[in-house]
Write a protein that binds this DNA or RNA. Sequence first.
RNA 1: GCGGAGGUGCCGGAGUGGUCAAACGGAACGCGUUUAGGCCGCGUUGGCUUAGUGCCUACCUAGGUUCAAAUCCUAGCCUCCGCACCA
Length: 1110
Amino acid sequence: MAEISFNKIEKKWQKKWEKAKIFNVNEKSKKKKYYVLEMFPYPSGSGLHMGHALNYTIGDIYARFKRMNELNVLYPMGYDALGLPAENAAIKEKTHPKKFTERAIKNFIEQQKALGLSYDWSRIIKTCSPDYYKWNQYFFLKFMEKGLIYRKKAPVNFCKKCDTVLANEQVHNGKCWRHLDTDVEIKYLEQWFIKTTNYAEELLKEIDKLDWPNRIKIMQKNWIGKSEGTEIDFEIFSKRNNYVLLHGYKGTPEKNFFLWLKNELENRGYKVTVPLLPNTDAPNINEQVEYILKNCSFDENTVLLGHSLGSVVALKVIEKLKKPIKKLITVAGFVIPNTKNRPYIKTFNWKYDFNKIKNNVKEILILKDINDLVIRKDSADKIKSAIGGEVMSFKAKEQHFCAKFEPEVLNACIDKFPVFTTRPDTLFGVTFMVISSQHPKLMELVTSSQKNEANNFLKKLKSTKQEDLDKFDKEGVFTGSYTIHPITKEKIPIWVGNFVLADYGSGMVMAVPAHDQRDFEFAKKYNLPIKPVVLKYSDESYSYVMGVDEKDINKPDVKIIEKTKDNYFKIKIPFASFEQYKEFIRDKMKPGFWNEFSTKNGFYFIFKHKDGKIEKFELNDKTNDIIDKYGMTFNNQEPNKIPENVYSWLAKNSFYKELLIHQDQGILINSKDFNDLNSEEAKAHITIYLEEKGLGRKTVNYKLKDWLVSRQRYWGTPIPIIYCEKCGIVPVPENQLPVKLQDKVSFGKGNPLETNKSFVNIKCPNCKGKAKRETDTMDTFFDSSWYFLRFTDSKNNKKPFDNKAIYWMPVDQYIGGAEHACMHLIYARFFTKALRDLGFLNFNEPFRKLFNQGMLHGEDGYVMSKSRGNVVLPEEVSKKYGIDTARLFLVSVASPDKDVQWSEKGIEGSYRFLKKLYEFFNKKIENEKSSKRVESKINKSIKEITNDIENFRYNLAIIKLRNLFEVLTEEKTSKKDLETYLKLLHLFCPHITEELWEKLGNKSFISLQKWPQADESKIDKNIEKQDEIIEQTLNDIFNILKIMREKQGKEPDKIYLYVIPNEISLYNENILSRKTNKQVKIFAVNNKNKFDPDNKSSKSKPGKPGIYVE
RNA sequence: GCGGAGGUGCCGGAGUGGUCAAACGGAACGCGUUUAGGCCGCGUUGGCUUAGUGCCUACCUAGGUUCAAAUCCUAGCCUCCGCACCA
C-alpha cells in the first residue's frame, strides 16, 4: 500500500533528533524560559494506547510551537513508577514489582519515542529510583521539622482490596478510587498525616488567580469546602461524672477556693468531694494522700482537680491509683516548688513516677494564669513535659486563680462538645443534638439504660450496605445523655444519628428542626419538639380566620386562600391595610372566638371572650403562657399544665407552616433578647454574645482534611522513621537517607516490608538501643507532588534541586486530565507552598496555566481502555498510516479539550491529505515568486494559525492548513512560502515536514526553525472578495448546469460570463475553467465583440455576472 | 439536592448578534477517470421554486429583546461531568 514509506522517514528523523540532542535544554540560554509539562504517566504493564498518544501529542505540539517561537523550552518526561497497581500486577505475574516496573518503563520510553515527541530525554525521572525517593524522605523529614507532619490515632479510610488506608481524596462516594465496587471501611488506626489544612485558606484564595479551566477551579474550591460559621460549646451533661477538688496550701473551709466550683457542679447534679486536707499549714505528703484515698472514691468517671499545691497532691494521688481516672486538671499547679521557705518543701517527696501518672489518667488539662505571682513561671510547661496534656494559658480574674468565680476553671471541669453551625441565628430553635454514629466518643455518651438500644442501632448500621445507607433514611436513637443549651440552659437530649458526618465539624450537630430539612425529618420521625425561631419574610399578614362571616371577610385587600369545611378562612392581607383589618376583625368576630395574624416580626392575637370582652396580645415570652391557656380554654379544653410554646403549635397549622418552618432567612422570634433581629444581624449578635461568655467563637470550617500519607504496602517510598523503645519516634538522620526499599520481602502476609527482619529490627540512631523501622510507605501522590521541580535539576545528588528550579519554575503550561483536580493538583499546590515556607522556593503556585485534554474514545464510543478491549495501538496505526497521520487525525477531529472518538474511516482522510501533500512537495518544485493570492493567504493563515495554536484550537489550525494547501496547489508559490507552510504543519507532523524541509534543500532541522511571522501588509482584502465572487459564480454555474442536466438532459461545455467592467479584474478564466472543468470565457458587458446569443449580459449586476452556457 | 459544561444538518464538529441553509472532516449519492472496483478529481446531500432566482422551514422546546437571533434574555426539557445528608 505504501508507495511512500512514512515509517522509514519517521525512524530516520527520530534517530537524527536523538543523535543531535536537539531537544535538550539548559539554563544558560539567552532565550526566555518556557516550561511545558504533561502529567507524568504511571507506567502500566500494558503500555501506551492511542489515548496516551493523544495526550502527549497535545503537549508536543505546544512545546514545539513555543520552541519555534524562540523560547527556551523545557519539555521533560518521567515516570510515576511506584504504586499499588505495579505491586499487584507483579504479585499476579509472580515477579518483583521492581522488575515489572523497569520493563514497563522501558516499553513506555520506546513507544513514546516512536510518537516523535520532543522531550528532553536527558532529564528522565523514575520515582522508584532511590535517587528520587531519597528526596521524598528528605522532604518528609523537613516537613516534620516544620511541624507539618504528625502521627495520630484517628478514624481512617481503609480499602480491603488495596489492603491499606487511603487519603480522603482517594475515597469517592464511600468507595475506593481504584475499586469502585469496594466500600471503604472506617478503622481507628495510628497513622502519619500531613497538615495540608494549614494551607487550606491559601490554597483556596489563590485559586482565583490561576489560569486554569474554570471547572477545575470550582472542583478545588468545593473540595477545600470553606464555610464560615460559629462554633458553639455545648455542655455535656452526664451524671456519671464525679469530681474531687483538692485545695492548695492553707486551704480552709471558710475561704476555700473551691466552694463556688463545688456549687456550680452540684447544681448540675454531679457528685463533688472537697476533702479538707489535714495539716494545711505544714502538709505531709503521705498523710494527705492517705487521707484522700480513704475519704474519696475514684473511678473512670472521676475528674480530679488540684489547685496550686493541691495539684502536687493530685499527682501523688494518681500515682497511687489502681485504675485510670477520666481527667486531671491542674490549676496553677507545679511539680517543683518555687520557694525554699515553705514548710511542705521538706515534708514532700518531690520525686514522681511520671509514667505511672500518665497511664493513670486519660486526659490532662493544665491551666495557667499568665500573671501568676505565686508559682514559677515555667510550672505549666514543666508539668506538660513531665506528663503531657494540654496547657491552657490566659489571664485569670485574680492572679493564681484566687477569684470567687473563674469561668475557665469551670469550663475545664465540664465536658463540652464544640458544635459547628452556619446558622447561629437559629440557636434558640435547638431542640435536640445528634452525634454521628461513627463518632469515636459516642459510647461515652451512651448511658447504661440506652446501651442496648444504641448497640442494636449501630449493629444495624454496620450490617447495612453502603448503597442502602445512601437512601438517606434518617434514623437514630437516644443516647440517654443531655446537653445544656448555652443560653437558655434548657436540657437538650442527645441522639445518635446516621445522617451526621463524623469527619465534618466536630461530628455532632445542633438540630434545629424548624429550620433544617434533615433535622425536621428526624424530629418528625421521632416526635421531637419543633420550635420555630425565624419568621420568614413576607409582605402579607397570614391569618386563619374563625368566627367571622364570609361576607364580612370579603374585603378588597383580602386574599382568600382557602375556605375550610368548617367555614373558616385562610387569608392573606397586605401589611399596608393590616391595621385597618385588625380593627375590622375585632368588631366582626363573634364572642367565644379568637383570631391570630402574622405580623412583620411575630404574631398578634385577638381574643373575644363570651361576654364580649376583648383582649389583644402580641406573642412574646410574657404573653406566651396566657395565649396558650386561652387557646385551650376557648377550644373547651383543659389548659396545659406546662404551657406549650405558642409558636410551636402555630407551626403545626399547615397555613402558618410556610412562615415558621423553612430554611430561609427572616426575623428572629422565640429567641429572647435577640428577637426582632434579622438572620444576618442575629448571626453576628449571637456569636458575639457567645464569645463574650466564652461559650463559642466565630470559626471557619474546611472540608479539606489533613493528608493521610501512610500506606501499608510495599511499592512506595519507605517512611524514614524509627521507633525506639526509649526515645520514641526518631527520624532517620539525614545522612542515612535514602532508606532503601528492600528487595527481599514476601508478599501476601500483611505489610511486605515487615517480613524483612533485618530491615525492621535496628538500633536507635540516638541511644543505640532496640528500635524498629516504620514499615509503612508513602502515598505515591507524595512522589508526584514535586516531580516537576526535580525535572529542573534531575541529576543533582546533593540536593532535591537547586536554583535551576527558580529559573524554570513555575510550569508555564501544564497538561493533564481532570481526574486529578482534587488529588494531585491539590497536593502539588500544597507542596509548593510548604517548600516555599521551608525556603526552597520563591513562588506560590506550581502551574501557571493548566489545560485539560479530552479523553479518547474507542470506535464503540466508550473511553479507550484495555479493560474495555477497545484500545487502538499507535504502533499498528503507525504501521499503516505513519505516526504523523495519527497525530494529525487525533487533533483534527475536535478541539483537544473535548473528548474524541477514534474512527478508522476518519484517519483515512488525514492520510489522504498527507499523501497528497507529500507528493506535492516531493515533485520537483520550481522556485517561483508567489502569487499575490498565495502571499495574502499564507500571511492570513500564519496569523490565524498562530492564534489557534496558542489557544489549543488545533482542530481549527488544521482546517486552515488544509485550505491553505489547496491554494498552494493552485497557484505559483515561492520556496520560502513552501517552507513557511512546512513550518506551520511541522507541529502536527514533525517527521514528514523534516523530510520535506530537507528535500527543499535545507541542512538544518525544521524543528529548530523560527515560527513564521505574519506580514499583515500582504493580506489583501480584495483577494478575499475575489474568492467570494468566484465561489458565488461557481455556485451559479453549477446550479445552471444541474438544472440543464436534469431538465433538458444537456451537458454544455462552454460557459460565457458577462461582467461589469470595473469588476473584470476579480474574475479569472483559468481558475473558473479548472474548477468547472469547462471552457469559460469572460467578457465585459460593454465589450462589443462579446458572444452573447441570449442577451444574458443584460442580467449582470455588481458582484453577479450574466451567464450563458452551451 | 448542589455546582459546572453542554444540546447545531446522516455522523463527528466549527460558529456566540447581520457576512448563515451554517466552516472543515467523515458518510451517502451523482458525475468524471477506469475494462471494472479501489484510488483520484468534481459536484450534490431541508422543502418548494427558478437557467445562476425567489420564498418557506430550520441550530433542544416555549416565550421575549432587536430593524436583525444558531448567537442575547427568561422559563422548561434533556445529556454529560463533578460533589453529594458539609450542619
